[in-house]
Design a protein around this nucleic acid. Structure first.
Length: 504
RNA sequence: GCCCGGUUCGUCUAGUGGUUAGGACGCCAGGUUUUCAACCUGGAGGUCACGGGUUCAAGUCCCGUACCGGGUGCCA
């Protein structure tokens, strides 16, 4: 039975790297008819951010990654919030101590800092709390059992550290990277249990993965260095470890480091699925949703960062991804995020939508502009604009003139197309237009083209200014379709007001 | 510093010892259009990080170096 989990910590808004980790877990679970579990790793009280968990849940919901077990929906292996499982971790830490795999330590932060400082100055290649240094620190190795007991009973702060064996060759296997060999001398006696009564990630993670019967751990590459420790912990508990797959990181577009919170707004693309306001600083960050990205586009973008199907297909639905996903087509190297291609994905998915669906999505934008319109008209507008839009909002920015007259005229367009004799031509054109009874695109086109030819004018000399008057800019959908839709009366009105305001 | 991972067009990538190194985004040009987009056609862009091996044959296997990234916390 495949069981995988997405285990974020609620220390801020989930970012798209995390969302991709969730996606790959989800795809793997669904592909293998397994379970996908959400577990909240809130063992760091200091970094806990209120609202972050809700944000994670809402983000997953938005992109459609539904989980089978989780903090808000429960499940057979709960609770799914680590802060509610602390007693469990305490118990298992005790087991490790009894087995000799862990020990108590009483060193203060200052003492730890001094130790590292000393090693640095001694130019030691390793500056670790390990078999070489623990004999000089305050812990179960240097204090008698009675002293340790006394200190704990006196309420002194302590941590529980892993007893990292010396000079042990550890070979771990990663599904994506193959064998990774590490010598335990490069590892340290990691803190497993903190003095605040909470476990660290390493302990809680191993215990939960075991208890929740996780079969595959699919997580970010930043965890690869601690995999040997985790393997050792499974060994210490005498538990069967799950299989591991470490995903390549999503990098900044310029290739300098992991994609991070700050990059987004700065570089003109979102880093978070949804809008987020930091409860402490009030700092705001834009999300994909609010930016106008379709959830299916976001999924598609993330899926193609670090994975490919081995075919030329690039546009996928979630369902198609489930069918085709496999961990052995996951890339080893980090992928730079490409904002341009992200937009293209959105456009591709937008184009797959029906006119009705697009209208549904566009309606709130119209409402926010205070526009009311009838459905048939809206549908026709959308059909004209559909192919020239990357985001829903652009139905407004590129098509507002279907709903209200232009308030200004594009300066560049005026400069190019508005000549000395243009006002006169436009007024004559207006007369011609008023004589067209059958105001349909095809007919308008035939009559106007005929008229232009009879006046021995060029199409562009007439039609570019006309477009400018009616919509305020020089580029847009098929001119005659546009005129038909806006309607004869309104077209005439716009020519009149335009000619008189542009007159200067 | 030490440890781990990575390295194919600007970017995402195909490629598992024998191909003119393929596709996509972006870019450029032409076609279509009154215009823009879409669409169609074409183009530029890669000494497969570098240096050594192994082999009849290496982007593909091995070693070294460089560079990039991650880790190195009582963060996750």
């Amino acid at each position: 039975m495949v069981r995988v989990r997405f285990a974020p910590s609620p220390t801020g808004p989930l970012h798209i790297g995390g969302l991709r980790t969730a996606l790959f877990n989800y795809l793997f679970a669904r592909k293998n008819s397994g379970k996908f579990i959400l577990r909240i790793e809130d063992t760091d009280q200091m970094r806990y951010v209120p609202g972050a968990e809700e944000y994670i849940v809402e983000s997953l919901k938005w992109v459609g990654l539904d989980y089978d077990e989780g903090p808000d929906i429960g499940g057979p292996k709960g609770p799914y919030r680590q802060s509610e499982r602390v007693e469990l971790y305490r118990k298992y830490a005790q087991v490790l101590i009894e087995k000799g795999w862990a020990y108590y330590a009483f060193d203060t932060p200052q003492e730890l800092e001094d130790m590292r400082q000393r090693l640095r100055q001694a130019k030691s290649s390793v500056q670790l709390y390990n078999h070489l240094t623990r004999g000089e620190m305050k812990n179960s190795f240097t204090l008698t059992q009675a002293e340790v007991k006394e200190r704990i009973e006196a309420g002194e702060k302590y941590v529980i550290r892993f007893n990292m064996p010396a000079d042990k060759q550890i070979i771990v296997h990663d599904i994506i990277r193959g064998e990774v060999k590490v010598n335990s001398n490069t590892l340290d006696d990691k803190v497993l249990f903190k003095s605040d009564g909470f476990p660290t990630y390493h302990l809680a993670n191993i215990i939960d993965d075991h208890l929740m019967e996780i079969s595959h751990v699919i997580r970010g590459e930043e965890w690869l260095p601690s995999l040997p420790l985790h393997i050792l912990l499974y060994e210490a508990f005498e538990w069967e470890p799950p299989k591991f797959a470490h995903l390549p990181l999503i990098l900044k577009p310029n290739g300098k480091g992991k994609l991070s919170k700050r990059d987004g707004d700065q570089m003109g693309f979102p880093v978070f699925p949804l809008d987020w306001t930091d409860p402490k600083t009030g700092e705001k960050a834009r999300g994909y949703r609010e930016w106008g990205y379709l959830p299916e586009a976001v999924i598609n973008i993330l899926a193609m960062l670090g994975w490919n199907p081995g075919t030329d297909q690039e546009i996928f639905t979630l369902q198609e991804l489930i069918e085709q996903f496999s961990l052995d087509r996951v890339q080893k190297s980090g992928a730079k995020f490409d904002p341009d291609k992200a937009r293209w994905f959105n456009q591709q998915h937008l184009r797959k939508k029906s006119t009705q669906e697009l209208a549904q999505m566009f309606l709130p934008v119209l409402e926010s502009q205070g526009i009311e319109t009838d459905e048939q008209y809206l549908f026709r507008v959308i059909e004209l604009l559909k192919d020239r839009v990357e985001f829903i909002e652009e139905f407004w920015t590129k098509g507002f003139y279907f709903f209200e007259p232009p308030r200004s005229y594009d300066a560049k367009g005026l400069k190019k197309a508005w000549k000395q004799q243009t006002p006169e031509i436009m007024l004559e054109l207006k007369e011609k237009i008023s004589q067209i009874d059958d105001f349909t695109s095809e007919n308008i086109e035939r009559e106007l083209k005929q008229w232009v030819e009879s006046k021995e004018l060029s199409f562009s000399k007439v039609f570019t200014p006309l477009r400018l008057l009616v919509q305020g800019s020089t580029s847009g959908p098929h001119l005659f379709d546009m005129l038909e839709l806006i309607g004869k009366k309104e077209v005439i009105r716009r020519i009149e007001t335009g000619v008189s305001t542009i007159k200067r």
